[in-house]
Design a protein around this nucleic acid. Structure first.
Length: 546
RNA sequence: GCGCCUGUAGCUCAGAUGGAUAGAGCAUCAGCCUCCGGAGCUGAGGGUCGGAGGUUCGAAUCCUCUCAGGCGCGCCA
């Protein structure tokens, strides 16, 4: 649609002999005043040294394809408004219905492969709301890219090596001893959530007091492995119920086991990006714009977390993706420069890795912040919120905000809303259309193919607005995809539903007029297709009955 | 102290590459079921876009300064 206006304008400007003067023609926003408004004449007035209004008049005179427009008029300081002709719109709608797949999808990413890593929560506790936000955004973005033609790999990175999982093991071990009535000090900074006790109880259920006589050193491997695997299973289960899927699960331990970490360090050493100082091995991150150099092997000989992360990202690169996307909680933003430094040290441009930050979630209950302390084990889990307000609603709330804005998640409000919730508003539109179809079929009407429908019968202002909105869907989709901003889809869907409900209330779709009914059913079908497509992109259900 | 994110209606949030009179939901108030699902619809009120300068024909959007909130600045992960 927009392209149509652009072409028309370019042609007219060339005819005037000023096409070259306009490097970038400003293409208007849809539906602000009429259909499209462009200030191109204002921009030109400086070049041509003539008043904008006069230029606008000349442009309008030079336009040849006037058929596609109902009106072309000049307003304000020199804006040209284009109003599409209704026959043009209905013809476009017809094309959309007949070739919907081709119309909706853009092959932006055709032949390209992208990996998106998200959630990647440590398996030391249940997923909390922040993880849920990352999950919702990551899943929606994956869907968008996939729909745009990319081959997408969704990956979860499991931090199963290092101190944190060991600490979880020790916490469970301590709880285990205590549950058996034995004295055992709880580790400093250990995990105190109820889930720790839950895991300890499972150990007792399965293995009894088998480990009660052992020291932690002896039982460490068992407790660490058992505990984090339990946690991981719970995380997987939470994600499954949140309807977020992953293609690959990359274990940090495996990177060590397969000598990927050493390999990566050797690689960097050969590239002369490492040096030794104070008994430690350093990566020269400052050579690539980071604030300071970073330790890879500590003076006690242990690897840092950064070491395995280098290996991990080197591995991503070696898999040959055209783009690597990491979705992180915003509290890790300070980590970006060093990782981008790694990418460059390995010979790739920093843009090869795209880090998307998802801002913090503040949890409120009845307008008051809920205190969250991981140490004390006081935090609200994704599971609890899903159970309390529903997974579609939870996702929708995450996807109705820009990822980089701080989010206040009010449990009470979310629950109160669940009767009158924006997500239902959208889903209800879909369900309503479905029930119109049921009704129509009951009257012997055809609700499958609309090849024969006479869409030029759609002529009310409401219908034309809906058609324009529908035809804008590919543009919205493309914008959301390129900007990596799924929330644009969310808002679009609310707007579309917001056009449909009033229309439904004002006009009857199924009437005695068979031709008009058929045309309106076709319009509903188009709405249904877009709603369903959008909801699916966001990872939300599109129930036919609610 | 340095860096990143945010500041738009009472509340929660949209406002892509600068465009005309800044939008939605919730909440508030007043209305709509003989008719395809009232989880719906119609209407009303509500704004110095944190503040101050600047660039521009034109700024919520770009630049500088400033105020406020959040988050980072380990041989932790």
């Amino acid at each position: 649609m927009g392209k149509g206006v652009r072409e028309v304008l370019e042609k007219a400007l060339n005819k005037m002999g000023v096409g070259d003067a306009v490097i970038e023609i400003e293409i208007p926003r849809e539906e602000k005043f009429g259909d499209f408004a462009t200030p191109v004449a204002i921009g030109l007035s400086r070049v041509l040294k003539k008043p904008p209004r006069k230029i606008a008049e000349e442009i309008v005179l030079s336009i040849e394809e006037k058929d596609a427009f109902e009106r072309i008029d000049i307003a304000g300081p020199g804006f040209i408004n284009f109003t599409y002709a209704k026959d043009f719109l209905s013809a476009q709608l017809k094309t959309f219905l007949l070739e919907k797949e081709r119309y909706i999808r853009k092959d932006i990413g055709k032949g390209k492969r992208v990996q998106i890593e998200f959630v990647s929560a440590n398996p030391t506790g249940p997923l909390h709301l922040g993880h849920g936000r990352g999950a919702a955004v990551g899943a929606a973005l994956s869907n968008l890219l996939e729909a745009g033609g990319y081959k997408v790999e969704r990956e979860y990175y499991i931090n199963d090596a290092g101190r944190q999982v060991k600490l979880l093991g020790l916490s469970v071990f301590a709880k285990y001893q205590q549950l058996l009535g034995l004295e055992y000090p709880f580790p400093e900074g250990g995990y105190r959530g109820d889930y720790v006790e839950g895991i300890a109880r499972q150990v007792i259920d399965r293995y009894g007091s088998k480990y009660s006589e052992m020291s932690f050193r002896e039982a460490e491997d068992f407790f660490t492995d058992f505990s984090y695997r339990e946690m991981l299973a719970e995380i997987e289960n939470d994600l499954k119920d949140f309807k977020v899927v992953f293609d690959t699960w990359q274990s940090e331990r495996e990177l060590y086991a397969k000598n990927d970490v050493e390999g990566a360090i050797d690689d960097l050493r050969h590239r002369r990006h490492l040096y030794e100082e104070d008994g430690a091995l350093w990566f020269k991150a400052t050579a690539f714009g980071d604030d300071k150099d970073r330790v890879i092997i500590k003076s006690d000989g242990e690897f840092t977390y950064f070491a395995s992360d280098i290996a991990y990202h080197r591995k991503k690169i070696e898999k040959g993706f055209d783009e690597i996307v990491d979705i992180w909680g915003a509290d890790h933003h300070g980590y970006i420069p060093r990782l981008k430094a790694v990418i460059q040290a390995l010979g790739y441009p920093p843009e090869h890795l795209k880090v998307l930050l998802v801002q913090m979630v503040t949890l409120l209950r009845g307008g008051k912040p809920v205190q969250m302390s991981k140490r004390a084990g006081e935090f609200v889990t994704l599971r609890e919120v899903m159970d309390e307000v529903g997974s579609d609603t939870t996702k929708f709330i995450f996807l109705t905000r820009r990822p980089d804005s701080h989010l206040e998640f009010d449990l009470e409000a979310a629950k109160e809303q669940s009767a009158e919730n924006p997500v239902f508003y959208v889903q209800y539109a879909n369900a309503r259309i479905n029930s119109i179809f049921v009704h129509a079929r009951g009257k012997g009407m055809d609700t499958a193919g609309f090849e024969g429908a006479n869409l030029s019968l759609l002529s009310t202002p409401e219908e034309l607005r809906i058609i324009k909105k529908l035809l804008a869907y590919p543009m919205t989709f493309e914008g959301a995809l390129i900007a990596h901003e799924p929330h644009r889809i969310t808002f679009y869907l609310q707007e579309l539903a917001g056009l449909f409900h009033p229309y439904y209330n004002k006009y009857k779709v199924v009437t005695d007029d068979a031709d008009l009914s058929q045309a309106r059913l076709a319009l509903c079908e188009a709405i249904r297709i877009v709603l369903k497509d959008g909801l699916q992109l966001l990872g939300l259900s599109a129930p036919e009955r609610m």
